Simulated assay, not measured.
Amino acid sequence: MRKTLGGWALAAVAGLGALATVAGTAHATPTEATSLYAPSSLVLSVADGDSAQATVTRAVTLTCRPTAGGDHPAPRAACAELQAARGTFAELTDLTTGSVCTREYAPVTVVAQGVWEGRNVSFSHTFANSCLQQSARGTLFHF
């Protein structure tokens, strides 16, 4: 009888130990590992007009964390530029030197809304025309 009770006790302890091991490793999921980074996910749009409420003609999504993605044509480059600019969107609307555009006034407004490194952002900038918008530094608003 002692051997039987000892066997059952040993089996119970081994079962509890295995259960604790499984429970201890059940928490290490890829979702939790990626949640250590503040999210960065944006909707970028271009509108014909001089305000953020103008009619949107193009829009893309850009996700930078946990990985670069979305339907932006160059997500890795756009994320790298935003990271280098420390999330300052205005730095990416500066015109490149040597850009040659007509002086026509047909305003185009770019808008970025969403989350950058865990904080809500809303940015808009109006260019005098689409040539100037395409002459802006970087690839963030080039889609």
Rank of each mutant, 00 (worst) to 15 (best):
T55F: 07
D48E: 15
S40I: 11
D50L: 00
V60M: 11
V46P: 02
D50K: 02
A78S: 06
P75K: 01
T67K: 09
V56Q: 11
T34V: 15
R58L: 13
T63D: 12
A78F: 05
L36E: 10
T67I: 14
S41A: 15
R65K: 12
Y37D: 10
R76I: 03
T34R: 14
T34S: 12
V56A: 14
T57M: 13
R76V: 05
T57F: 07
R76G: 01
P75T: 00
R76D: 11
T63L: 02
S40E: 10
S40C: 06
V46A: 12
A77C: 11
R58M: 13
T61Q: 08
C79K: 05
P39R: 07
P66M: 04
T67R: 14
V60R: 15
A74G: 08
G69V: 05
T57W: 09
G49R: 02
S40W: 09
C64T: 04
Y37H: 11
C79I: 10
Q53D: 15
S41E: 12
P66L: 00
A78I: 03
R65L: 06
S51A: 09
A52W: 05
L62K: 03
V46S: 08
A54C: 03
H72V: 09
A59G: 03
A68R: 04
P73W: 07
C79Q: 05
L62A: 00
L44M: 06
T61L: 08
T63N: 09
G69A: 07
L44F: 07
V46C: 04
T57H: 08
V43F: 09
L42N: 03
P39S: 02
A74D: 15
A59Q: 15
S45E: 06
R58S: 10
S41T: 14
P66Q: 00
G69M: 02
S40N: 06
Y37N: 09
L62N: 03
R65S: 14
P75Q: 04
D48W: 04
S35L: 10
A52G: 10
R65I: 04
A68G: 04
L42Y: 00
V46D: 01
T57G: 07
S35D: 15
L42M: 06
T55I: 09
R65W: 05
T57C: 05
V60F: 11
P73C: 08
A77W: 02
A52P: 04
V56N: 04
H72K: 06
V60S: 11
T55C: 02
R58Y: 13
S45P: 03
A54H: 00
P73F: 04
H72Y: 12
Q53Y: 00
S45T: 07
Y37P: 05
G70V: 08
A80T: 14
H72C: 08
A80P: 01
T57V: 14
T55Q: 12
A80E: 11
D50G: 03
G70M: 08
R65V: 14
G49S: 02
D50N: 15
S41I: 10
L36V: 13
C79G: 10
A54N: 00
R58N: 11
T57P: 00
A78T: 03
P66K: 03
D71T: 13
S35A: 15
T67F: 12
S51G: 05
L82Q: 11
D50H: 05
H72E: 12
E81R: 09
T34Q: 13
V60W: 13
D71N: 15
S45W: 07
D71K: 09
R65E: 14
